[in-house]
Amino acid sequence: MEKSLVSIITPSFNSEKFIVEAIQSVQHQTYQHWEMIIVDDCSTDETVSIIEEIAIKDARVQLFKLEKNSGTGISRNAALAKANGKYIAFLDADDLWKPNKLAVQIEFMKVNNLPFTFSFYECINEAGQPLNRRIEAPLHLSYRQLFFCNYVGNLTGIYDVNYFGKIAISSIRKRQDWMMWLTVLKKIKFAQLVPESLAFYRIRDNSISASKFDLVKHNFSVYRSYHRLNLIGATLCMIGFLFTQLILKPRYSKTIKASI
């Protein structure tokens, strides 16, 4: 039986230090029926030339370039417009997948008749060294749980285009992934995840994810722009969000012995 095509959405910007590893982690997948659509957001380093060299040898790796620097959301939407797969998956240019990632998740979706799933993942530092931390999530994730905390690692999520269509991604600077998964959970109400780690999330030294203040600021903007809450409503939701971050979510972060 012919395998379903997976379209992998990858935005890139000045990613020359990491893009080769990211692409190789896709090329090394045991599930080989994929296309990797990379949209470069006007990189000023050698990112484009590196991708072009790889694409010459592997036609499944496709490069498109934006005419002006527009942000991650615009890049992802541009890649989404080019996607031909039944399934949409996401991998940023500095993150990595384990070799069995696609095979495990696609099989899990088919066996359980699911239009969406995600998985645990592990954290690495900028140099690619394990931080011995695995990020887990509720086995059955509800919309209400996701409302107060983004438990879905973007590098692990996969959805079925035949069920959802192509889900447009917000153009705001950060947290587009959270809004996308909220759109998914609004429709299906609950999500089941693969209870194993299938990817590595790279924590950059200067990343917004590393800054708690910036994280709070961008999450507040989600309550204001995506949920369209007034100032009081958004503030109350942020109190719920902070409670989740401080009390509930830490139990899903495990110390492990990690290896790449």
Rank of each mutant, 00 (worst) to 15 (best):
M1N: 10
E2V: 07
S7F: 02
I8C: 08
I9C: 05
P11S: 01
N14C: 03
F18W: 12
V20G: 05
A22W: 04
I23A: 04
Q24I: 14
Q24N: 15
V26C: 11
Y31E: 05
H33K: 15
E35V: 10
C42Q: 08
D45M: 04
E46T: 05
V48S: 02
I51Y: 07
E52C: 08
A55N: 01
I56Y: 05
D58I: 14
D58S: 07
D58V: 10
D58W: 08
D58E: 11
A59H: 15
A59R: 14
A59G: 12
Q62E: 12
Q62Y: 02
L63H: 03
L66I: 02
I74M: 02
N77I: 05
L80Q: 06
A81W: 10
Y87K: 01
Y87N: 02
A89K: 03
F90G: 01
A93W: 03
D94Q: 11
D94W: 10
D94R: 06
D94N: 13
D94M: 04
D95N: 08
K98W: 15
N100C: 11
F108H: 06
N113Q: 15
N113K: 14
L114Q: 09
P115W: 07
T117R: 03
T117L: 07
E122K: 10
C123I: 10
P130C: 03
P130F: 01
N132F: 10
R133F: 12
I135S: 11
L139W: 14
L139T: 14
Y143Q: 09
Y143R: 13
F148M: 13
N150Y: 00
N150I: 03
V152K: 03
N154V: 12
I158H: 06
I158S: 10
S171P: 06
I172N: 12
D177F: 01
L182I: 08
V184D: 01
A191M: 06
Q192C: 14
S197E: 12
Y201P: 00
I203C: 02
R204V: 07
N206W: 04
I208Q: 12
S209Q: 10
F213Q: 04
L215N: 13
N219V: 09
R224M: 05
S225R: 15
Y226E: 09
Y226V: 05
L229W: 10
L242A: 11
F243M: 13
T244M: 13
K249G: 13
